[in-house]
Structures are given as structure tokens and as C-alpha cells.
């Protein structure tokens, strides 16, 4: 896929997702919704990175045996994909820890509303 409309779509979609996630994280009062906003934000950053790997008319970065001298222009950039695999794992781990905290908070306090929890924190 080529063309400037793809670029436009890519940058604006990832940017939009980032902003949606950021707003959700900051504004939502319920902890699980905050977590969802966080996940959306992380995912948008991952997709942004992946877009950096694209090359026109290039194929997946798997070198078949019958290509002894791979040309850099024939395969997409493998580095952002490798980095983002790590970033995805980091995101999943963080969500796991966040869910553990949410579970513990709910078991003890009975509520997951940020405002109620903050008042309990202050008392």
C-alpha cells in the first residue's frame, strides 16, 4: 500500500488513539476504565512504531533459502517489530500487575471509584 493517504491515516489514527487513551486514563473515575485507557494508549504507541517499519513494495522480513543476497529494499525493517514485541510484553505485564492491584483494592475496600478511594486514603 502506498500513497500519502495511508501515511495521513496512520499518523492521525495512532495519534487519535493515544489521545483517547490519555483522556480515558485521566478523566474516568472507575479504576478498570483507567486501566483500559492505559492499554489503549500503549497500543497506539506500538502501532505508531510499527508504521516506521513499512517499506513500499517490500515483503515480510523472512529470508527464504533461495535468496542468497537479500536486498534491504525488498524486506520491511525488522527492528521496530522486534522492539514492539518487547513493548507488548511489557504492556501485558503491567496490565497484569494493575489487575492484581485492582482485585486487592476491591477485596478490601469494596469500591473501585477513584474519588471514594482517594477519600479513604486521606482519612
Amino acid at each position: 500500500m502506498t500513497g500519502t493517504w495511508v501515511a495521513w491515516l496512520h499518523y492521525w489514527l495512532t495519534g487519535g488513539l493515544l489521545l483517547v487513551g490519555l483522556y480515558g486514563m485521566l478523566a474516568a473515575p472507575h479504576l478498570v476504565r483507567k486501566l483500559m485507557g492505559m492499554n489503549i494508549m500503549q497500543t497506539s504507541i506500538i502501532i505508531f512504531f510499527l508504521g516506521l517499519a513499512a517499506k513500499t513494495d517490500a515483503t515480510l522480513p523472512i529470508v527464504p533459502t533461495d535468496d542468497p543476497a537479500p536486498a534491504a529494499a525488498a524486506y520491511i525493517n525488522p527492528l521496530p517489530h522486534a522492539l514492539m514485541l518487547t513493548a507488548i510484553v511489557v504492556g501485558v505485564s503491567t496490565s497484569g500487575v494493575a489487575l492484581a492491584l485492582i482485585l486487592r483494592i476491591h477485596r478490601h475496600f469494596g469500591t473501585l471509584d477513584e474519588r471514594d478511594l482517594l477519600s479513604k486514603l486521606r482519612e
Partner: peptide, 29 residues
């Protein structure tokens, strides 16, 4: 978007593509 001579694809990664299989033995770069 998508050009092969963008800095992201022109500096470090050509070595991964051109010499990846011979240096590491992995087909999947």
C-alpha cells in the same frame, strides 16, 4: 511513510536484512 531511504530504514536495519541470515542462522529476521 513507507520509503526505503527513511532514516529508520537506512541506517541500522539494512545490516539486519542483508547479513541477518548469514550472521545468525535465522531465516526470520
Amino acid at each position: 511513510f513507507g520509503t526505503a531511504d527513511a532514516p529508520a530504514s537506512a541506517h541500522v536495519s539494512p545490516r539486519y536484512i542483508e547479513r541477518g541470515y548469514e550472521e545468525t542462522g535465522a531465516h526470520n529476521l
